[in-house]
Amino acid sequence: MEYFIQQLANGLTLGSIYGLVAIGYTMVYGIIGMINFAHGDIFMLGGFAALIVFLILTTFFAGIPVALALLVMLIVAMLMTGLWNWTIERIAYRPLRGSFRLAPLITAIGMSIVLSNFIQVTQGPRNKPIPPLVTEVYHIGNITISLKQILIVVITSILLFAFWYIVNKTPLGRAQRATEQDRKMAALLGVDVDKTISITFIMGAALAAVAGSMYLMYYGVASFNDGFIPGVKAFTAAVLGGIGSLPGAVLGGLLIGLIESLWSAYFSIAYKDVATFAILAIVLIFKPTGILGRPEVEKV
């Protein structure tokens, strides 16, 4: 039982990270109907931004409190990654809007390769380690919970709440939902659709940057390749939860995190990714739109 709870805690931590990244996939899909395959690399880029900020802070401001360092790291990573994604949308995706459906998809795959190669060339192909940031651990019986894990879950929860609030309660969120549901009508009501889409990319990137920073903090290394496997898993989470659905992205992320850690704990760690994708396949057979996805019939 304690072992199970331990794995639950690990799964929840991992799931939080996947969920944050999944939101970026699902939002972009919702608003422009495009799978942004480069989003995994945006997550990776966020991790590197955090890494660089952290190294700068610890080199030039040695002795800076860890909490402050973390905060600065998160904020700068969010800003830098948001700017990256804004630029990518602006130069690579927007010109293709309105062309045939596969064009932006292919461009996104290309962009994904560009980003990971760019980091490989500029930062080197090896894993980049950082010194352990937050090392405290707590023992409850035989269960070990690290402060890192608590931080990840807490930060994720705060962000999810803020995000939920923006999307559901603010004029910006209404404009985003309107653009998602009927772009032309949104424009007829004075919504600047291009700007709204840009902001959506920035928001998705900011969440991915936080996820990237936490992934870095959790595992202690960053690699140019991180956009791939974790990226694909976050994408899987979005599909599992129902692509286009924000609660679905969070739920999907948590499920993938839990499946991964429980499978590794009770079965074979080597097959954890196979298990994840097998479950995705099974869910999609019975519910093609994902767990919380809405069927495509509601068209007025």
């Binding site: 209404r174 404009a175 939902r177 309107a178 549901q181 007829l188 009501l189 004075g190 007025v300």
Partner: peptide
């Protein structure tokens, strides 16, 4: 302001939110 052909109500927004969308110009 236009009430276009086919009405183009935002289907997954409430009536109230649809009206809020109309009033977006003045925040």
């Amino acid at each position: 302001a236009q009430s276009p052909e086919g009405r183009r109500i935002f289907p997954r927004m409430t009536v109230y939110e649809n009206l809020q969308m109309g009033a977006g110009l003045d925040n």
